[in-house]
């Protein structure tokens, strides 16, 4: 893939991640922190199309810019910790153990570690590990649902994108 082409695609992906992040703030949450995590779809797309470094880059840009769009500045720290941790875990699972995981499994693991990262950060900032214990069970349940959903969406997007990208040479 040519350099400009890659750059354009990456820019598109980042902006789509941001749009998804923004749209999500209008979707009511049923459980605390149990957001759909739609932006994660773009992380996975990047991971599959480009690789580890690019995926983490997308996560970082999205985590920094996302809270500026809709949310508070303090949100950056939480987005970053959750996003990077889940990005790393998903990369390991996809790049090293792809044979054993479906995209849904990888996405679910990503959702789980996204939550763990955020909760650990909150526990650390507030100085109470109780936060982790309180929120984890309900967030784990949510992660199964959102993780599978996002994994499925990623699967379809990749199917579509791969055809298009091939056509475009």
């Amino acid at each position: 893939m040519r350099k400009t082409r890659k750059l354009t695609l990456m820019a598109l992906i980042v902006s789509q991640a941001l749009v998804l992040h923004y749209i999500e703030s209008f979707i009511p949450v049923l459980a605390p922190g149990a957001k759909l995590g739609l932006a994660n779809i773009m992380t996975m797309v990047t991971l599959v199309l480009f690789g580890f470094r690019e995926a983490v880059l997308v996560v970082i840009i999205r985590s920094v810019l996302g809270p500026l769009l809709g949310g508070s500045i303090t949100g950056i720290v939480y987005s970053l910790s959750g996003g990077i941790l889940s990005g790393i875990i998903m990369s390991i699972l996809y790049l090293k153990f792809e044979t054993y995981f479906s995209l849904m499994g990888i996405s679910t693991a990503g959702a789980v570690f996204h939550n763990i990262g955020q909760l650990l950060t909150a526990s650390w900032i507030f100085g109470s590990i109780g936060i982790l214990y309180t929120y984890l069970p309900v967030l784990m349940l949510a992660a199964i649902i959102t993780g599978n959903f996002n994994g499925l969406v990623t699967h379809y997007i990749l199917g579509y994108l791969k055809d298009r990208l091939r056509q475009g040479g």
Partner: peptide
């Protein structure tokens, strides 16, 4: 690509 795999079970 969407079948449940062994790793998913581990998750």
């Amino acid at each position: 690509g969407k079948k449940l795999k062994i790793g998913d079970v581990l998750v």
